[in-house]
Structures are given as C-alpha cells and as structure tokens.
Nucleic acid binder design. Structure first.
Lengths: 166, 166
DNA sequence: ATCTTTTAGTTCATCAATGAAATATAAACT
DNA sequence: AGTTTATATTTCATTGATGAACTAAAAGAT
C-alpha cells in the first residue's frame, strides 16, 4: 500500500513518530472517506446527500415519524444551520412537513409524509446488496471484532474531542 | 449507543435489512467523520485543513521533496481542481514553490521550501500524543486486528467503487 | 508538415457545511 | 408587570470541494 511507504519514509526522518498508530489514523480516515464516496454514489440517483439521507432514515425510524429540528440535530450530529437546509430541501420534495407545535410555540414539528415513507421504503432496500458486499469476505468473528474496535476508537475520539471543548 | 436503537427499529419495519452490516457501515462512517473533526481541530492552530496537511506531508515524505500537481493528486487522492487551490495557498504561505519543468512545459514542478520543511518538523511532533491517545487502550493485538480489518474493508470499497466507474 | 488527439493544469460556477449574528418565543427572576 | 436569560430556528458570509469548460503543450496520425 502506498501510504505505508510514505509513513515509513517520514518515520526515518522523524523516528519519534508512532508509526503503527499513525498508519491506523490514516487508514481510518481513508476508509471513512471511501465509505462516504461510495454512499454518495449510491444516493446520487435519488438526489440525496448523506445528511439528508441520514435525517430521513432517523425520522423513519422514530416511532411516530415525527420530531423537531433540534432533536434531529442531535440524532444526526448535524449543526442547526445545516438541519434548516436539510429540512428545506426535504419539504420542497414533499418528503416531510414543517408545522409549529401548539404546546411550545418556539418548537417546529417535523413529520414524515406518506410520500416520504414510500420513498424510503423504495430507495433503501436496493442498497442492501451494496452494504452486504462491503463485508462479503468478513467472517462473523471479523464483523464482531471490527464492531468492537471501531466502537472503542469512536469512544476514544469523543473523549479526546470533548476534553478539548468542554 | 443511540445508533443501535435506530437500526433496531428500522429492522423491525424492514426485516430484510442486513442489520449487523448496516451497523458496521454507520460505525465506519461515524468514526471517519469524528476522526476528521479531531484532525481539523488539531490543524486549526496552524491554519491548515486536512487536504493541505496531507499534501504537505506527502511532499515532505518524498525523497527529493519535489513533485507535480498530477502526482500529488494521485498520492493524496484529491481532484485536480482542489490541488490547484491547495498549491495556491501553500505557495502563498511560502511552504512550497511552483516552477515550470524544462523537459515538458505542461508540467508544473512543486517543491517544498526550507521554510516548509521547518514548518512540518515543528507542527507534526506535537500531534503525536493525540495520535497515541486514540489507541491508548488498544492492545498490540487490537491494533493489528484493526489494521487488518480496515485494510480489508478499504479494499472491498475500492473494488466496488471501481466496478461502478471503470 | 499539418491536423487531430491526448495530457497537464487552471479558471469559473456551484453545492454542501459551518460559525456568527439576528430573530422570535418561552421561562425565570426581581 | 418588566427585564433578563435560555432555547429554537433562521439568515448571512465564508470555506472547501467538485464538475464543466478552457488553455497550452506534447504525442500521434495522415
């Protein structure tokens, strides 16, 4: 792999580099961005991007198919600004509606429309072969291991990132 | 974890969902974007973004500290357009120079300046504790496993992505 | 030798995401 | 009641990345 040679050479100039860990960093970053690319390609025919798709799936997964921008921000780990844009485009496409709550009139009610539900049910299943394909040559043990290690890594990242901005 | 409940609920509505694999996808995507965030935060004080940092490190790792935009695009997996922007900003900061090649006058020679080398040598080592911290509670076996599984996943993604666009 | 095709790099227009500030409503305090 | 504080959302300006169209040089074809 190309990356390894590069890190190897840097390691020769800067021997204090934690080479194994640096490689894992690059690897996780690369894998992440390749996954993003692949997902984007899969979503393109439906004219959705990752955050719009994610928001739609979250809304679909909620028991009543109904939420608020603030809650969706948390669940999809998106900024409020971006959520406004997402909601705008999804409303424009008739997949969700925006209404104002009666109890707390600051709140905005976002709910999935019947069209939205049909849309998710149609566009999601065709992605399954692709999802399966990614792990086709993974044993069950491999999958469990990867899940465990990624969760561990994600936890560490979150702790470090939170330590920085409290 | 929040994600698991969501996938669990979707799985109840759409039982054909490959739940384990979908979870791994989400996990890889999340981990990737958290890594990006963390890296961006680390680079901010140096007013660099990921692609600029990567380009700089690649150039630093090359034996002669010298390359062309085209080669850098490949090594950093960046688009040509973006590489032009990257080179512009790095030239503006005096970290690299752009000159034209004499053999092939289409080609642009990009080379790291002495300032650029000093800059990398100063800004890179302080990132090591952070890099180490990410894997602090990983055993050596964990690291090897994660490396193996991520490479495997990355390979599968590339194969699938290339199959789509030949 | 000229005409066409290919390659390298850039410019321009656009999109997605973000931070800072603005607005609106509700809750808390005095 | 009136002011302050907190919460939810939107607007605006900026950044980073990308695709399409463009320019210049080299390679290949007739």
């Amino acid at each position: 792999m190309l990356m390894d040679e590069g890190i190897e050479r840097v390691n020769q100039i800067i021997p204090s580099l934690p080479a194994m860990e640096a490689r894992l960093c690059r690897l996780a970053l690369m894998t992440g961005s390749r996954m993003e690319e692949g997902l984007a390609a899969k979503l393109k025919p439906y004219k959705l991007n990752h955050s719009e798709f994610l928001t739609l799936m979250i809304l679909y997964s909620l028991p009543d198919g109904c939420s608020t921008p603030g809650e969706l921000c948390e669940l999809a780990t998106q900024g409020a600004t971006n959520m406004t844009r997402i909601a705008n485009t999804l409303v424009k496409r008739g997949l969700i509606t925006r209404g104002s709550s009666k109890e707390d009139r600051r709140r905005v009610q976002i709910r999935m429309t019947a069209d939205g539900q049909r849309f998710v049910q149609q566009m999601f299943p065709p992605m399954f072969p692709h999802i399966d394909g990614l792990f086709a040559d993974f044993s069950e043990a491999d999958k469990r291991q990867l899940s465990r290690l990624l969760r561990k890594l994600a936890k560490n990242i979150d702790e470090i990132n939170e330590a920085r901005m409290p």
